[in-house]
Write a protein that binds this DNA or RNA. Structure first.
Length: 469
RNA sequence: GGCCGGGUGGCCGAGUGGCUUAGGCAAGGGCCUGCAAAGCCCUGUACGCGGGUUCGAUUCCCGCCCCGGCCUCCA
């Protein structure tokens, strides 16, 4: 079975057919580094990280590119307000994004181009578009002439005539130097106090859409395999990328993949976004739960569906992931060093689920059924089968970046873990003595006091185990 | 107004023209345990509303209601 992915352009799930077999060039629109990352940003990264990891697991040589938009109206505005240079704000926020992506175990992209470092490619691309008769300079601005683009609107399903009839230009009164209301800026003439770069049309800075067309081609070539991003970028951003690139004579992306947005539970039910003032930052969430729980909460649903963010979603994730962790921990203890026998977890089920448009929910069902089978093997002391099952389950978890052993730090303790363990052992021995005397009241008292300190005891066939609650 | 996507059992969340059940969480019952914890087994009979097609629809078609995304910066 080969990988099939939903393609926004054709609105169907169809085979992923890269230009060069065995190679996958993926471009995704990264963040505008204006403010700290919120849960929605990380959901995006996690969804695409699963794609990234699954491509690699499937044997593709992947080049994964995620840009950083560091030249932008809002960054310039906010930085000016804060009295700092635009690049200082951008750099600081870019670090915050990198930290958040790392925190939830997203693989680093192979390239993270910045707009500010891509100006020469951008101006060269604009020149090319002008030469080919699809853009025009006007008072230091450059606009793309949308009416010259055949098939404009195909990606987003927009009809140019309908767009024209909309009131967007009227509302924004920005018809300015444009020949046609639909035209959009490739280059904006410099304004007082704003960053600018030299260009054939005078000093200025790039428009929003052109940067991605330029950076994608820089790193992946004029035609590449897959372009991804949030559903909110389909129009106008991606539509305009297609238009520009086609105007430059580039075939551009062969497959378009868009993920769903995070909405806010309760009152509004709207999309989470900085501008709506309803966002929850990643930092805030990670003060309450471990990053692997956040990863599970954001990654367990299908990438295209809308995800409603709530405290409930987080605690559900905590329980569900806890079950997986418990199994891996128990099984690892019991099966370490055991020669693996026949696994009772189905890697083919897992692989088929991911091959079918990254069906993570189905894939997790395969994980959970492996966990259930594994727990039964553990109870039956069938260690060889358990060892094999654990291997398969962990291989699945690794693809989803949810393996408790290799991908996430053990909970709590750190350097103090051996010390705590020694202290707990004293209590455990005291309890064992009491139990030997059948002094259940005393035994329970020891256990209760440990419980009160957040330490849970479990009696197993291999002895007493303790863990943090 | 235009263009999209969605409404599934207590909750989250897959999927399908009928077959054998998604999966998880929560709940109830049982097993295990001195009691617990962890775990295993069993139970729930769902598919927004109204029509239509069909031997049969949650799944296809039409209409309606509701929710969300885009049309403006946005993952």
């Amino acid at each position: 079975m080969t990988l099939r992915l939903y393609d926004t352009l054709t609105r169907t799930v169809r085979p992923f057919e890269p230009l060069r077999p065995g190679h996958a060039g993926v471009y995704t629109c990264g963040p505008t580094v204006q403010a700290r990352p919120h849960v929605g940003h990380v959901r995006s990264a996690i969804a695409l990280d699963v794609l990234h990891r699954w491509l690699r697991e499937s044997g593709y040589q992947v080049v994964f590119v995620r840009n950083v938009t560091d030249v932008d109206d809002k960054i310039i505005h906010d930085a000016a307000h804060a009295g700092e240079p635009w690049w200082a704000l951008g750099t600081r926020m870019e670090r915050a994004f990198t930290w958040a992506y790392d925190a939830v175990q997203c693989l680093p992209p192979d390239a993270t181009p910045r707009v500010s470092s891509s100006i020469p490619s951008i101006t060269a691309l604009i020149e090319r578009i002008i030469e080919r008769g699809h853009a025009y300079a006007s008072d230091g601005d450059v606009y793309l002439s949308v009416r010259t683009v055949e098939g404009y609107g195909a990606l987003s399903g927009q009809d140019p005539d309908q767009l024209r009839a909309s009131d967007k230009e009227v509302a924004h009164g920005q018809t300015g130097q444009k020949r046609d209301a639909l035209d959009f800026a490739l280059w904006k003439a410099a304004k007082e106090g704003e960053p600018s770069w030299p260009s054939p049309w005078g000093p200025g800075r790039p428009g929003w859409h052109i940067e991605c067309s330029a950076m994608a081609v820089d790193h992946l070539g004029e035609e590449f395999d897959l372009h991804a991003g949030g559903l909110d970028l389909v129009f106008p951003h991606h539509e305009n990328e297609v238009a520009q690139s086609r105007c430059a004579g580039h075939p551009f992306a062969r497959h378009w993949l868009h993920h769903g947005l995070v909405t806010v539970a309760g009152g509004s039910g709207e999309k989470m976004s900085k501008s709506l003032g309803n966002s929850t930052t990643v930092e805030d969430v990670l003060e309450r739960v471990r990053p692997q729980v956040l990863r599970y909460a954001l990654g367990a649903g299908h990438y295209r569906s809308q995800l409603e963010w709530s405290g409930q979603a987080l605690s559900d994730a905590e329980s569900a992931y806890g079950r997986i962790e418990t199994f891996v921990r128990n099984a690892t203890e019991a099966a370490t060093g055991v020669e693996p026998g026949e696994p009772q977890a189905s890697w083919p089920d897992f692989a088929a689920a991911l091959d079918d448009d990254l069906g993570v929910p189905q894939a997790l069902a395969a994980v959970h059924s492996g966990v259930r089978a594994g727990n039964a093997l553990l109870a039956a002391r069938d260690l060889p089968a358990l060892a094999a099952t654990l291997q398969v389950v962990r291989r699945m978890l690794t693809v989803l970046a949810l393996d408790p052993v290799s991908q996430w730090p053990a909970a709590g303790g750190g350097e103090l873990a051996p010390v705590v363990d020694a202290l707990v052992q004293i209590a455990v021995e005291a309890r064992a003595d009491a139990r030997a005397r059948k002094d259940w009241a005393r035994a329970d008292e020891v256990r209760d006091r440990l419980n009160a300190s957040g330490i849970v005891l479990e009696d197993t066939p291999d002895g007493v185990r303790w863990r943090l609650a």
